[in-house]
Computed example of a mutant assay.
Amino acid sequence: MTLTAGNTLISLKALSKHYGTHTVLDRIDLEVKSGEVLAIIGPSGSGKSTLLRCINYLEPPDGGSVTIGTTTIDATKPVERAELSGLRRRVGMVFQSFNLFPHMSVLRNVSLAQERVLGRSRREADERSMQLLTRVGLADKAGQFPVRCSGGQQQRIAIARALALDPEVMLFDEPTSALDPELGLEVLAVMRELAESGMTMIVVTHEMGFAENVSDTVMIMADGHIVEKGPSAEVMRNPQQERTRRFLRAVHDR
């Protein structure tokens, strides 16, 4: 099935995650439409990053279900390898750390997974990699090793690598948190371009400007729950819940 803008692309039903007696995610229900950019904000320890990792099953949830496109995995049942591959094939993820291979060139970092996961020839993979490196403004770095690139450049390479697998949705886990403000702006500019191109994105972020001005929807999490969710400018400027108001006051007072 081809998903068009406005169709639900991601659906979470009663998604739960526990570590021992500690509940990290408490029966989360969430829908994200194709082409939507969802920003998730909230205090540390609220379950934001765990939610992302449960969506692509880097952290298997303990209960509920995850649906991406036509692929659904029920956390209460044994997961088949084909189901897991089908789910992860639809999702690209960018972490706080860049996780690039230091012994490989920038080009090879972006091409390798295409050959192994998608079965592209090296020539096809390299052509696609160069298109994406050009898109993120780093075509001139293709032959260099990651250590010769700044943190902002390495994060943009990581974005290109994730895009190279042609995902339907991109997950970003605080992608600018390890960068100084100037380098962070480079990454945010690429993410803004992705949003404007219609990429479905879920972004865990402390960048309030991005949350208000680039995302379509803002979701506030605290203590493993969704506290508030709605149109970005509305939530950021006129929050309805006291917990949201308290968090935003704390952010603005820093």
Score class of each variant (00 low, 15 high):
Asn109Glu: 08
Leu138Gly: 00
Ser65Met: 07
Leu87Trp: 06
Ala158Thr: 12
Thr67Cys: 14
Gly69Tyr: 04
Ser129Trp: 00
Pro175Glu: 08
Gln114Asp: 05
Leu132Thr: 07
Asn99Asp: 12
Ser65Gln: 14
Arg88Ala: 13
Arg128Gln: 11
Val94Lys: 00
Ser97Trp: 03
Phe172Asp: 01
Ala164Lys: 00
Val169Ala: 05
Arg81Trp: 12
Ala113His: 00
Arg120Lys: 13
Pro61Asp: 05
Leu52Gly: 02
Ala178Arg: 02
Pro146Thr: 02
Phe101Trp: 15
Glu59Met: 05
Arg116Pro: 01
Gln153Val: 09
Thr72Ser: 14
Glu174His: 01
Glu168Ala: 13
Thr76Asn: 12
Arg156Ile: 12
His103Met: 15
Gln155Tyr: 13
Gln144Val: 02
Val106Gln: 09
Arg116Cys: 06
Leu112Gln: 04
Glu115Leu: 00
Phe101Asp: 10
Thr50Asp: 10
Ser85Val: 14
Leu132Met: 05
Arg156Gln: 08
Ser111Ile: 01
Val91Gly: 01
Arg90Met: 09
Pro175Val: 05
Ala113Gly: 10
Val79Trp: 09
Arg53Phe: 04
Ala82His: 14
Ser129Met: 00
Gln155Phe: 04
Thr72His: 13
Asp173Phe: 04
Arg122Gly: 03
Arg123Lys: 13
Glu174Leu: 00
Leu112Cys: 01
Ala162Gln: 03
Ala160Asn: 11
Ser121Cys: 04
Ile68Trp: 04
Gln144Lys: 13
Gly143Ile: 13
Gly137Val: 09
Asn109Pro: 11
Ser85Trp: 13
Glu83Val: 07
His103Cys: 12
Glu83Phe: 10
Gln153Asn: 07
Leu163Thr: 06
Val110Met: 03
Pro102Glu: 12
Val169Leu: 10
Gln131Ala: 12
Gly92Ile: 07
